[in-house]
Simulated assay, not measured.
Amino acid sequence: MSEKRQSIDMEEFAQKFANVYYVKLLFEKEVEIPYEELYKKLQDAFGEVDKVATSDLSSFALKAHTVDYQDVSGIPSQLMIAEMIPFDQSTIPDMVLHQCWTSENPQGLLNKCCYEIMVSDFLASGLERMERCQIIAKYIDVLLDVFPTCIALYWPHSQKLMPVEAYKNSQWYNPDFHFLDGGLNVRFFNVQDSEDMVVDTTGLFPLGIPDLQVHFHGIDHNFMIQYIYNFVSYLFVNGDIIKDGETMDGRNEHERWVCQHEDCLIAPSRVVLDVCPNEFAAGKRER
């Protein structure tokens, strides 16, 4: 497998992460948005909340979660919700369905989705990463309470389609990581005509930290998937603190695997922290 592995300019990378984070709630049938009920539940969840607008795009300002900018400080971050519109199933890439591990029948789930409500944050990119992600996760929890007929969620930034139950039943031991139930996708690929495999992530890059990638052979892929999940939790808490050439534990604390920021091997285009698993490494690496 021919690869171009180059170290990435992290200052340039840091300028590209998402300023607005959005999620799509998917429905089988049309529903009305109960704005007043949503407003009251947001107050219960976030404290003092102001209504900024109620039209085709409604917004709620979170007075307890403010952002300082160069010319002004204390700007409340906001949560937005758009009106329901028909959902175009063709906007979901085939890769999303191929890497959907939370549904036994991803295509069947998608076929049921006829309408969407897009929700997002706004003026929130200046918040601390964990704070911002916990706000988004809590917002989705509130929305699923308000919209009991929602059947699926689509997270465009992580390219993850999932049934609602998969989000509600968090797989993370730490409630602070609940965002990752939807905001992270761990993918697995077999490389054609070889014994090589790739495990990578999507969803971290929009948060301003690199996604993860390991290209390997000769080791159980289930171990590598769990390894990546554990690595994600470390990056999520600590941020992009691993420098090119530094190492992380491999299969145990005595085995060291070298890390390097690189262009990804598999779309979408993004920066990844590539992990080189020593004798299990696949592909051509120029360290």
Rank of each mutant, 00 (worst) to 15 (best):
H221N: 14
L180G: 06
E165F: 09
Y69W: 08
Y167P: 06
F147K: 00
G250S: 10
P163C: 04
F147Y: 14
N252A: 00
P86D: 14
K138D: 00
N111A: 11
E37Q: 14
F46K: 00
A166P: 02
N278R: 08
S59F: 01
A64K: 13
D274K: 07
D68M: 10
L212F: 08
Y227V: 04
A281I: 03
E36M: 14
H178P: 09
Q15S: 10
V191D: 08
Y35P: 06
Q78T: 07
S7A: 15
H178A: 11
S170N: 10
Q134D: 02
F236H: 02
D94Q: 14
A282K: 01
P148H: 07
I85E: 15
S233K: 04
Y167F: 15
S170Y: 09
L97N: 01
I81D: 04
K51L: 14
V142I: 06
Y69S: 07
P76N: 00
G108K: 02
E286F: 13
K243H: 08
F177T: 00
E28Y: 06
T66Y: 00
Y167K: 01
V96H: 07
A14Y: 13
V67R: 02
V119H: 02
F236V: 03
Y39A: 03
Q78H: 09
D68S: 08
D56N: 15
R251P: 01
E286G: 13
E83C: 15
A14N: 14
G239Y: 03
E30Y: 10
D68F: 11
L144N: 07
S55V: 09
I75D: 04
V96N: 06
H215Y: 15
P93K: 05
F231L: 09
W101R: 14
K168M: 10
D121V: 00
P156Y: 05
L153M: 09
M1S: 13
S7V: 12
K16Y: 03
Q6C: 11
P206Y: 09
E279G: 13
G245C: 08
P156S: 11
M197D: 00
E48C: 09
P76G: 03
L26V: 02
V232A: 03
H217C: 11
A124E: 05
V164F: 08
D141A: 08
M1R: 11
Y39H: 12
W172L: 05
K284W: 12
D176V: 00
I81L: 07
M118Q: 14
F179S: 06
M10V: 09
V271M: 10
Q43S: 14
D94G: 12
G218E: 03
V164D: 08
G182D: 04
S55L: 07
C276P: 01
I151S: 01
F188S: 04
R132G: 00
P34W: 08
V49K: 00
K4H: 11
E253L: 09
I241N: 13
F205S: 10
G208R: 05
T202K: 06
E262Q: 05
K138N: 12
